[in-house]
Design a protein around this nucleic acid. Structure first.
Length: 285
DNA sequence: CCTTGTGTTCTCCG
DNA sequence: CCGGAGAACACAAG
């Protein structure tokens, strides 16, 4: 489940590899993942050069520098795997646990570059998508997203403003991309634990101090997760086929029923905002 | 049955 | 009765 830290890791890694490269050909192996007419899609991308790679929330945007863009959303199980020339294995160790052979049965699209390097879009569940956009469409999509936790404008004041008047739970707000962008189910629960706040609480019950702790926790968790190159809970891997290291730093996500790492009390698992939610009813108020 | 990200639809309330 | 907010639902596939 790639969330902001995973998508940002992919963005940074890919920028190192494919900036300036020219697309020679695109193959689409599963039609439904392309949100456009097939023929038009392949034709459009031919000879386009990667000028930059942007991100808003969990959405990657390849900028061709000519007012046109390619959006890539990985949804739950998407991967972007980069391979140099004719090397068929993306992972570093050909016989280690990180082995990732591409293409494979989950490869849905392949982007070939003029220099013979290749970018594979894998997606086991095929919920992710590739989409073309012009500058206007890009700006319209960006507008729908809330504050970015890493942006300069993510200040305590703007965070308070974003929460103001919300009548729902903290968990629902953290997951709402229109309020704050890039946080998914894993980091929402981790942020709440870090802030010592129950995710099921209503936003309206937050004191000024609570909000401040939530704000600090978002920055701390997101930054640390990026530093550790993301969380591999199921099938997330970076463009080289490598897992992220943040799994071992998780304190609540996926640990319902286990003892709290801080107080040993049994972690509660409930359903909030239609998502599985784990918290410690002792440590979190 | 479960899993999550997101888009749509429903419902409530002022 | 309209608009907005939020909840609920739908959907993807394994």
């Amino acid at each position: 489940m790639p969330e902001l830290p995973e998508v940002e890791t992919i963005r940074r890694d890919l920028r190192e590899k494919i900036l300036g490269k020219e697309i020679s050909r695109v193959d689409v192996l599963r039609a439904k993942i392309v949100r456009a007419d097939h023929g038009r899609f392949k034709n459009f991308l031919k000879n386009k050069k990667i000028k930059d790679i942007d991100r808003v929330g969990k959405l990657l945007m390849f900028d061709f520098g000519d007012q046109h863009h390619l959006f890539v959303h990985l949804k739950m199980t998407g991967q972007l795997i980069y391979v140099d020339s004719d090397n068929l294995v993306a992972g570093g160790h050909s016989d280690g646990p990180d082995l990732l052979v591409v293409p494979n049965v989950h490869t849905r699209a392949v982007i070939y570059f003029v220099d013979s390097s290749v970018l594979y879009f894998n997606d086991m569940r095929a919920f992710g998508y590739l989409q073309l956009a012009n500058e206007l469409e890009k700006q319209a999509v960006i507008k729908k997203y809330g504050i970015e936790p890493l942006a300069d404008n993510f200040t305590i004041n703007n965070f308070e403003q974003a929460l103001k008047g919300k009548k729902t739970t903290i968990k629902a707000v953290l997951l709402n991309q229109g309020i704050i962008s890039g946080i998914g189910n894993i980091y929402a629960d981790e942020v709440c634990f870090e802030a010592k706040i129950k995710p099921i609480r209503l936003v309206s019950t937050l004191t000024k101090q609570d909000t401040k702790r939530l704000y600090t926790a978002i920055q701390k968790i997101i930054k640390k997760a990026i530093q550790e190159r993301g969380t591999t809970f199921n099938n997330y891997v970076d463009p080289h086929g490598k897992k992220g290291n943040f799994l071992s730093f998780l304190k609540v996500y996926g640990k319902g029923g286990e003892p709290c790492l801080v107080c040993k009390n049994k972690l509660k698992k409930v359903r909030v905002a239609a998502r599985g939610t784990v918290f410690c009813s002792v440590c979190q108020k």
